[in-house]
Design a binder for these strands. Structure first.
Lengths: 204, 204, 204, 204
DNA sequence: CATGAATGAGTATTCATTCAT
DNA sequence: AATGAATGAATACTCATTCAT
């Protein structure tokens, strides 16, 4: 029993090390340029061990994507008493961008998009998580605000996409084409402008 | 002289054939899966000739992208007498989507995005053309509409991005993750809703 | 002591299980395609245990071959009172083919032959058992028949090889090149013809 | 035209060199131990060139086998005026053994047999050529001898197999299990004995 | 004594690019 | 100028064997 536990612990550590090294490598090189041998070396594991854990390069990549997608986060704790509507919109925007940039969702999305012809299912799943699921959690916040009379009654599904669309247009889209993209210094100001527009349309 | 002309014509024809075959192949396979030999064969040219025209696979890809980007189109002819504001917004939206889908800009963007780590400059240039330049031409139309009193005075640069952002959110973004994406049947209705929002914000 | 006995029994069971699984696997896949891990799994043993019993893949194979060779059988009980010469020849032939096909000697021979360049000694030994020793036992029967006046005096060593050669030509040789070979429906008739020839040459 | 001719010549030379090197290597190592890289090196060719000529290791092996099978030879020129029956039987036997040993048919057969589970079709074809076709040509000689009254009328198909079976039993079978097998010093004497038996059965 | 995770050497195959004719 | 044969470096994946627990 203790032996099994030990083995599992060691194995889990290696698995994690592999996933970490793989993420790094995929981010640096993209899918096709990434090399299994190099990933193994960087994870301090033999290639055979790597293949014990993940059947193929594609399986490994899928696992990396899945793992990263889990940090898509929920926005449920964002509504705090005393917050103005603008406060909340601001917090939502920042939370959105944090996930996108700090969790490297951006870079991973690039790679997934690259693999659309080769691994369509993976891309569909990632879109489901990174777009649809995310929108759902955002929409829940919108609905809550409507219910509390902070926003006027409207189709929250649409307003959510409008907000997400604008954030992407301003910050995600350019990042997709630039590996070194950093959020611009006037990010906060831009977010305020977005809030203006949003409130003009949907303010109570 | 006539011989030279002839030679140049033949050469140009081959160059065009190569570019066409390469576009096809890149779209089908993505960058790394595409093969120079196959492209040469499909262009009815020897590999050596292919390399006479394009130094490397990357050079060829850059040329393909550049060529495709030229069809980004301008929207200058869109303003017609008798058009309502809504008519024009509708036409702009459709023109935008036509470029995006009929000219396979979508698929090409996927490939360029894939190559961001390997060919950053190319991606930046494409973004410049496909996003900035396009926005500029759209913005010119907006400005014209403001001038004519069809829209209330406002920051056209921002409203343009808002419009483009929404179009991307609804139609481009999902297409990025799905090689077989087709414009949905209710595309027209969605465009009308976008126009509603736009007019609510910027209508004269 | 009893503990030791128990241990030995368990160990022997595992050994037998391994040999059985290995035979199966070798027959299915041939030597080089067979996998030690798979054999271990099929024998319900860990790879380490497998290696405790057999030093290497080749050792294991040798053991498998040796074990299978023991069923080469002897033909001593074949002479029964009241049998005609033809009866005995018929029984000898059938016994020969039974060993060859039912005991999978055919398939094993294929594998051993395959390994001649890699394991020459093994092949030589198998030939010794499967050909020479077998011929010896057959020859003993021939000699007995000569002694009893059932066959005319002659060189039994040669006549044995003649008989064995014909059986191989007709039934073994084609089976060597066809994994799915089955004894043909007219096997019995062919055996009678062989007996005819044999009696014409060596009948009393 | 001359260019094409030249290219074809060079290409043919390389192809031949590859086949030669491959034959050598397969004979030395068997199929699975043979290495494409080593074959390429021994043929003084790059691996890529090797693969230009032969799609895969199996294709290459099939080509090697096919090439070797062509030297199975025909026995039509064997009947010469003035020859006794015994002369002819002797010549047939020797021709048979020459093909078997000098043309390395023996060694190749070993490898083909080894690959029966992996490449059944190849083995079947080789059996067709090396056994059936060969027997047919031998049988034609038998029939001719019967027609000329040199042998008494009989089923030549059967007598051919009897002869071939005996030759295999004495000389081919042991060679199958011994890579270094050489024809024994008393080969000639054994052939005479076979002729004795044959004549006893089928002599005019 | 048994386990199964870990190893690292080995291999077929591909592909962008060059070169002799 | 055009060809297509030739290159060699690169890479995902396998497998017999060992070792820490």
């Amino acid at each position: 029993m203790s032996l099994d536990t030990h083995r599992r612990n060691v194995s889990d550590k290696k698995r994690t090390a592999i996933l970490k090294a793989a993420l790094d490598n995929f981010l640096r090189n993209g899918f096709s340029r990434a090399g299994m041998a190099e990933i193994a070396r960087e994870a301090d594991v033999s290639t055979a061990t790597l293949y014990k854990h993940f059947d193929s390069k594609e399986t490994l990549f899928a696992a990396v994507v899945k793992r990263a997608s889990q940090s898509v986060g929920d926005y449920s704790g964002i509504l705090e008493p005393g917050d103005t509507v603008r406060d909340i919109l601001r917090k939502l925007s920042k939370a959105y961008l944090t996930v996108q940039f700090d969790h490297k969702a951006n870079a991973l999305m690039r790679i997934v998009i690259a693999e659309v012809p080769g691994a369509p299912k993976l891309a569909t799943e990632m879109y489901e998580v990174l777009a649809n699921r995310r929108n759902d959690t955002l929409m829940a916040v919108m609905d809550a605000m409507i219910e509390r009379g902070m926003l006027k009654p409207h189709d929250a599904a649409f307003s959510t996409r409008l907000g997400a669309g604008m954030l992407k247009e301003l910050f995600v889209w350019p990042a997709l084409f630039d590996a070194d993209y950093k959020l611009p210094p006037d990010t906060d100001k831009k977010i305020e402008v977005l809030a203006d527009v949003f409130l003009e349309l949907y303010g109570a």
